Amino acid sequence: MLKISRFHAIAGALLAFGLSSMAQATDAPSSGLGQSWPNATDVSANPHWHVYVFEKDGVRYVQVNDTNGGVHAAIATAGGQVLVLPIGADAQSVTTSTSTTTTDTSGDTVYSDGTTTIKAAALSTGTVQMSVTSTGCTDPVECSTRVN
């Protein structure tokens, strides 16, 4: 019979607890979309914006706020597809494209995760043009199982 010392048992339990806590800490929250100051990590690539990422049921939601907490836009992405959500002051000014289409992608990068990039450009009308570019997905099997 295997004998485990009390020290090893406690050390093993603490290690397991620590690893489970780290895994939970890296998971994106599943609620808070649309809030000015959601309980989520700011992942913005630009100090003039706050960007929050949420995940639920295999869909990733990305919300862009200004530095005062005003919600400007949000998108949903899954399986290489991008949808503009009707959230935020500039929701009507969001454009989307894939890497195979040519669009104007001027502006400052506010978010990039390797497959999705969001740029923001202030317009003379006082609104902000958000441009979302996605690398898309060309493999149907991968598209149905991968979240961007």
Rank of each mutant, 00 (worst) to 15 (best):
V59L: 09
T41W: 07
A78P: 14
G32W: 02
V62S: 07
V64W: 09
A74D: 14
D57Q: 13
V53M: 13
Q81T: 09
H72V: 01
E55W: 04
R60H: 13
V62M: 12
A40D: 04
N68E: 13
E55K: 06
H72D: 09
G70L: 08
G58I: 13
E55S: 10
A78R: 07
V43N: 09
K56N: 15
A25T: 10
A76P: 03
H48P: 05
D66E: 08
L33V: 02
H72Y: 15
T67G: 05
A28D: 14
D66R: 04
G69E: 01
G58K: 06
G58T: 09
G70V: 14
D42M: 12
V51R: 01
T26I: 12
N39H: 05
W37N: 11
N46K: 07
G80N: 03
A28F: 07
A23H: 15
P29C: 08
P38I: 00
G58E: 08
P38K: 00
D66I: 04
Q24H: 05
E55V: 04
Y61G: 15
V51I: 10
Y52P: 01
H72K: 04
N46G: 06
K56F: 13
E55F: 10
Q63N: 11
Q63S: 13
E55I: 14
H72F: 06
A74R: 01
A45G: 15
Q63M: 15
H48R: 04
A23Y: 10
F54M: 05
N68R: 12
G32P: 01
Q35L: 10
W49S: 06
G70M: 13
W37K: 08
Q63L: 09
R60P: 08
Q24I: 11
A76V: 08
W49K: 05
S36M: 04
P47S: 13
V64P: 10
V51W: 01
Y52A: 03
A25C: 04
H72S: 13
A23G: 13
L33Q: 00
V43A: 05
G80I: 02
H72Q: 05
S44M: 03
D27S: 09
H50F: 03
A73R: 00
D57V: 06
H72L: 12
A40E: 15
Q24T: 07
P29Q: 04
